[in-house]
Write a protein that binds this DNA or RNA. Structure first.
Lengths: 143, 143
DNA sequence: CCCATAATAGTAATGATTCCTATTTTCAAG
DNA sequence: CTTGAAAATAGGAATCATTACTATTATGGG
């Protein structure tokens, strides 16, 4: 049962710690191969799962259907851009009070919550505005 | 482009409206086959997706990795029991205020949030307590 | 009633993830 | 420093939910 820390596991975790965009297993695989060319995809999956199970990293699930991983294990919230798919950490207070709200009138025991936000990231919001402005200009030129 | 409402689509939606436990596509398939024996799984998937796209039903994604569907399209929250997997509707106020909290200091545009809760449902909580009590009794008998 | 087209059944394909197994690596004890 | 049992790996096969494909059928406006 004792864990034996393989070089592969270390490389995977090291890579994840350099990223703040919560990559998928496949992205981890692609990048780690630069440093460890014959690592296998299965090893990446196994280690990401294991690291998540022992609490050294966090597994995140949004609605794109693929798992994302985060080396930051502190409780924090995420924003997903519906246009470019980017995932961004949000700096905000924790929302534990919503568990009290959920628990009122509920006969079970609420132990945790999953929350994330979606919309347009700063860049996409700005890009969209630019497109609208230039479309307006084009229409004006046409009379 | 005009929708033609097939009997299959109607049966699928009718079934979903009878359930408040947010079944998966496969569960819908299994049940709908009683009434419509040679309906195909693909048809169930296609219609659930379509109904969700046009807003007649809701697609729910928790962290079990399979899509769940809900005929109740009103905004409401869910609880997932980590022991028995049951999904329960929660009666609670909406949480739109957390989007304001998330938006503070964020340069993008927050358009929505996804939130669900997890823990032990009422039944599992009670069952666990029973187990603990009977374990204590057994230990007492052993001295 | 007709017919353009939406929808279906059945099946193949996809994509993320897990499983399998022979081989290699790790690490604690001698 | 060896050694050997347990843990981990590489590579590939298997799984599972979901989507795509295609020949056929059902729908509904004119």
């Amino acid at each position: 049962m004792a864990l034996k820390y393989s070089r592969q596991r270390q490389v995977i975790k090291d890579f994840l710690m350099t990223r703040k965009d919560h990559p998928t297993a496949d992205t981890v695989y692609m990048n780690v191969r630069n440093e460890y060319p014959n690592i296998s995809l299965g090893t990446v999956y196994r280690n990401l799962s294991l690291l998540a199970d022992i609490g050294e990293i966090q597994r995140l699930r949004f609605d794109d259907g693929v798992d994302h991983f985060d080396a930051d294990t502190s409780a924090h919230y995420h924003f997903v851009c519906t246009q470019c798919g980017q995932i961004i950490d949000l700096k905000m207070d924790n929302l534990d009070h919503i568990m009290d709200m959920a628990g009122t009138g509920f006969d079970g025991e609420i132990q945790g919550h999953v929350t994330y936000f979606h919309g347009l990231c700063g860049k996409c919001k700005k890009d969209n505005l630019q497109s609208k402005l230039s479309l307006r200009d084009s229409l004006r030129e046409l009379g």
